[in-house]
Design a protein around this nucleic acid. Structure first.
Lengths: 204, 204
DNA sequence: AATAATACTGAATGTATATACAGTATAATG
DNA sequence: CATTATACTGTATATACATTCAGTATTATT
């Protein structure tokens, strides 16, 4: 999907909210009223841009002929496994650790992801990650400093902030002062990055 | 619900199918075309009958202003509004604060809920609730001590732990030592509980 | 037997709406 | 430096649409 400007996003949200509220799409004038535009052509040009980028379709010559294109509607009701972060020394992230499957629209967190990880412990407490939270994990090696990663050293899986300290040294930092920084020397220790966190779900 | 004639039922189905297919409701002429009527007034009178019986609502003077009234819409709605927790003194939780709608399977958090609240500030930091998180809010007055509630005092909306200290005194407790406890004397101050948190979503 | 509701055709009309055209202005791109 | 995309205001207009009025006919309800 092509990128969208903030104004175009406002218009898109406006359409969604309007449909949710009234049951039918807005006119150009309705959009202007909602967003404070003074000319119907302001709405018109935004609609054309959204259509060009594939977010909506417009039926020409038809009043309120706007419909939102949701390419993920067919794939709706995707099931993602919830994997338990079990005690150290176990072969985690394997199929046998699947707690259950969880129904969640794809692209729920903007980016795609692969599975949910059930969090154990409070080592990332100050990042707002609590015990039993579900982290949406995207399998990737594309990690930037400051990303929250799911890292494996030997058989132990851990969730930490990633910081490349030097070409050979990686720091895995907790977000809780009761836990200590893990310094990994890549020359002597094998570090495997399972992926990174792209979202979080908590059930109260 | 009153009984419906077979012709009226055809019209009702026609509307539903049309919306499903196009994303917006039909005009009188569209209905005629679908069902073989030769006068727009045929559709008009059926629509009036359906409105009178409570199956649809018609927005007067509005093209395609038909919406289907579905009493089970709360149970099958997949789209939930995200409401921004705006600055103090504003009439929050009103429709005009809807940021956008968020697609989420019903019963996502075990319990049903009504909307998402966008969190501002860090007053519940130690409960793992961070800025910009989305709290799934269930509108209810069924609150137990220790629940995370969305409370309103005058026009100010806040998210806090609920603790009934005595029959007339309620404590609204933050989860951040930088913030102070709010003691509410129900005899002198009006406290309205909007609902409670049943879940949380974070987009990284 | 009279009234009301249903089920249509057909024509007429005011207005709600899409949409083109004419401008102004800013930021990004090649 | 010309071009394209974005982001608007403002005016104008053909037409898409809701809606009323005038009929005809059939079937329930009182």
């Amino acid at each position: 999907m092509k990128d969208i400007t903030s104004q175009q996003n406002k218009v898109l949200n406006c359409i969604q909210v309007y449909i949710k509220k009234t049951g039918f799409p807005p006119t150009r004038a309705d959009i202007c009223k909602e967003l404070g535009f003074k000319s119907p052509n302001s709405a018109e040009t935004h609609l054309r841009a959204l259509e060009k980028k594939g977010f909506i379709s417009i039926e020409s010559g038809t009043s309120r002929g706007i419909s939102i294109i949701n390419p993920e509607i067919e794939n709706e009701g995707d099931e993602y496994p919830i994997i338990g972060l079990v005690a150290a020394g176990s072969p985690t992230l394997a199929t046998e650790n699947v707690e259950k499957v969880f129904n969640c629209p794809q692209g729920f967190f903007g980016s795609n992801f692969d599975y949910f990880l059930r969090v154990r412990g409070l080592s990332m407490k100050d990042a707002g990650i609590m015990e039993d939270d579900l982290i949406a994990v995207k399998k990737t090696q594309d990690i930037k400093n400051g990303d929250i990663v799911i890292a494996r050293i030997d058989d132990e899986v851990t969730v930490k902030y990633f910081h490349r300290h030097s070409p050979k040294i990686v720091h895995l930092q907790p977000a809780n002062e009761d836990f200590s920084n893990i310094e990994v020397d890549l020359e002597h220790t094998e570090l495997f990055i399972e992926g990174k966190s792209v979202g979080l779900i908590r059930e109260n």
